[in-house]
Amino acid sequence: MKEYRFKENKLKVILDDESIVFVRGKNDLKIHKSMRGENKVFFNQILGIKYQEPALLKKGFIQFSIPRTNIVGVVRSMDQGANAIVFNKNEQEMINEIRNYVENKLRESKVTDSESSSIKMLKEYKELLDMDIITQDEFESKKKELLK
């Protein structure tokens, strides 16, 4: 677990093995009440990352998009201020560490998903073999292909 503190925004960001946690002041009247307190986002919920570097007179931001609603089978993303960090140039190093950590977790998740998908496919081919729908040679060929 690693913690990052953004003093200007009174924000603490905590990274652990499965999530990113945003902790903002419960009594901070400078921020909207929906953003106060603790907001935990699991890595497997993150659909994308929006990022903008700080400029000369402009702050940067990083925002983690999560699913919103399931409308007719289509998942749409929701960009929430509670899932964002606004930062300036002297906080860039912390942002880079957070971004790299989250991106690595997202990549690991995709590898795991593709591995489990291959195993499911292999089980389906085994069922087809057991039902004599495909031959042993066809099964072995698909097995080699899926386990590469």
Score class of each variant (00 low, 15 high):
T112E: 14
R68N: 15
G48W: 14
D28S: 00
K26D: 09
Y101I: 02
A55N: 12
V86L: 01
G73L: 09
Q80T: 14
A55T: 05
K12V: 03
M78S: 08
R24E: 00
I14W: 03
L11V: 02
F42Q: 08
N96L: 15
L106Y: 09
N44T: 06
S34P: 10
N27I: 12
I66Q: 03
K58W: 03
E97R: 04
V41P: 06
N83L: 08
N39G: 05
I14H: 00
K59M: 12
G60K: 03
H32R: 10
V23M: 07
N90E: 15
V41R: 01
S109Q: 13
F22E: 00
H32D: 14
Y101K: 02
N27Y: 12
T69R: 15
G48D: 15
L106Q: 02
I85K: 03
I46G: 09
E93G: 07
I14L: 15
Q52E: 14
I20V: 05
V111D: 02
I14D: 07
Y101P: 01
G48H: 08
F87H: 11
F64H: 04
V86H: 01
V86E: 13
R107Q: 12
S65Q: 04
I85L: 02
F87I: 02
E97H: 08
D79W: 15
T112H: 10
N70A: 12
I46K: 00
I98V: 13
D79Q: 09
N90D: 11
N100K: 13
E97F: 02
M78R: 06
L47S: 09
G37I: 10
G25E: 07
F61Q: 03
M35C: 13
L29D: 06
R24L: 00
V111Q: 10
V13M: 03
K26E: 15
N39K: 10
I62Q: 00
E53Y: 05
V74H: 06
S34D: 11
G73V: 08
I14P: 00
V74A: 12
F43D: 01
G25K: 01
K110T: 05
K12G: 05
L106K: 00
Y51G: 11
I66W: 04
M94W: 08
I31P: 03
M94E: 09
R99W: 08
V72M: 14
V86F: 03
S77T: 11
K59E: 07
M78W: 11
V86D: 08
D28M: 04
L56W: 13
I85N: 07
L106A: 04
N39Q: 04
I14S: 10
A82Q: 07
V86W: 06
T69V: 09
N88W: 09
V23C: 12
G37H: 01
R76A: 11
E115G: 00
A82F: 04
L57A: 09
N70S: 15
F42A: 07
E103R: 05
K89L: 13
S116K: 12
L29W: 10
N44H: 11
Q63D: 10
A55D: 12
E115W: 14
M94P: 02
V41Q: 02
D113Q: 10
L11H: 05
K110N: 04
V13W: 11
S34Q: 09
V75C: 08
G81S: 13
Q63C: 15
N104V: 07
S65V: 12
E18A: 10
V111Y: 14
F22W: 01
I98P: 10
N104W: 10
R68L: 14
L29G: 06
I95Y: 13
K89P: 05
T112F: 10
S114N: 14
K110E: 15
